[in-house]
Design a protein around this nucleic acid. Structure first.
Lengths: 130, 130, 130, 130
DNA sequence: GTGGTCTAGACCACC
DNA sequence: GTGGTCTAGACCACT
């Protein structure tokens, strides 16, 4: 799986890394049990500081997407339950997205269509090498 | 309309302000043409610095949600077109949300139901005084 | 001649007023010796404060475009010499405009064509009533 | 490249800064990809507040002259397209300049000569150290 | 060490 | 009274 970092982006690098791993897991480009590259390895590949990679991994670990194993390094977690705190966090983000959509004159139908399209995209982002 | 700031939140105050104004516009608690409080006034009401309010207003202005009128101060914009850059930005956020939902075992049906519920919420957040 | 004020504009109203009078003089919609509306009259017509109109007129007067006559009010000046301070001021603005054009990949030819077109426009802005 | 601030000028410092960077880019004293001094560094060098420099940089960023790279700070943008909004903005300024020139009895020929001279100046402002 | 955020307070331009 | 500009200084996030 290829991870791309945009140093011009507004969002911090460790967050871009975290987001791409989440998308990778959803699309099954990263499978449960699969090992992620080591912190230093990925840092070298991306040309960034390994502290940054570490922060991204820690974030993913805290959120339950991966587990850190002292011997195998970071591996994709087996499963993830839908906690109430997750849904309330997600609802908050969706409320804001919906509000923006409303302000831009997207009807509920159009908005829902967009949501559905992106859900399908999340399942099937074009698989790439590595 | 009541705006509430959470100083413990990770997101900056000016962004919380911006988000709440967007939600206010979507839910018609703020109507097109309506004047927002002056930066200094709102800053005093919220107990924050007026520069912070100013930054939030500037952001809203750049995004087209409000206009700065030389005489009336900040007023809610009359209209907002759905630009392609807006939809691509929105798609990006929805892709990430969907990926997180997939990882937490939300089916497409459940996820779409959530999106629809929040769209309705955005239209009708419980109205509050002033 | 119709003057239009945009309260949303970044530039102050008195400056918009000043600019439009200058363009009016260049295009001969305002002829030397012609009287401008009184400060209070124009202020009422434009729906702005008469101090603002006064400031615009004062600016035009200082620059030699109009003369203030105690009895006839503001009248368009007969003539205007090309002082060295005017040309150096103009050169400064043209240097900046040219630099911006260069950064946006306008060739000298294109830029000069644009300058010529606007010179012709300045001579012949479509004449309107009042 | 040397930047000079005139605290007596009517135009705000951040705008003077912005203008000089634009002229620097046009004259190739600042090359695409080249890093600008950090906001705090430049502020110290110019003896002004870093917020003021920041505002100038933000303006340049919004206009596409520079990009803010998370790691290298502010760097001169690689390229800049001639958007229609740019040309209409430029046309507006050129119309006013031309009108002023007409009022000061500059013939089209003289005016165009001035425009051409300043275009050449913009390409080759005398190069200075650092 | 970089930029980002926030505060506090002063002065000015505009209306 | 409104926003705009500038200063000064503190603390934090990011790399």
């Amino acid at each position: 799986m290829i991870i791309e970092i945009n140093t011009l982006s507004h969002s911090p690098i460790y967050e871009q890394l975290r987001d791409q791993v989440v998308i990778g897991i959803a699309s099954k480009k990263l499978l449960p049990g699969e090992a992620l590259p080591s912190v230093r390895r990925l840092a070298a590949d991306l040309g960034i500081n390994f502290h940054t990679v570490n922060k991204g991994y820690t974030m993913l670990c805290d959120e339950g997407y991966i587990v850190m194993d002292r011997r195998k390094g970071a591996v994709v977690a087996q499963t993830q339950k839908s906690t109430s705190e997750f849904t309330s966090m997600l609802s908050g983000k969706l409320l804001l997205n919906a509000a923006e959509a409303v302000c831009h004159k997207l009807s509920e139908k159009e908005y829902i269509a967009l949501c559905g399209r992106e859900y399908k995209n999340a399942l099937a982002v074009s698989k790439e090498g590595i």
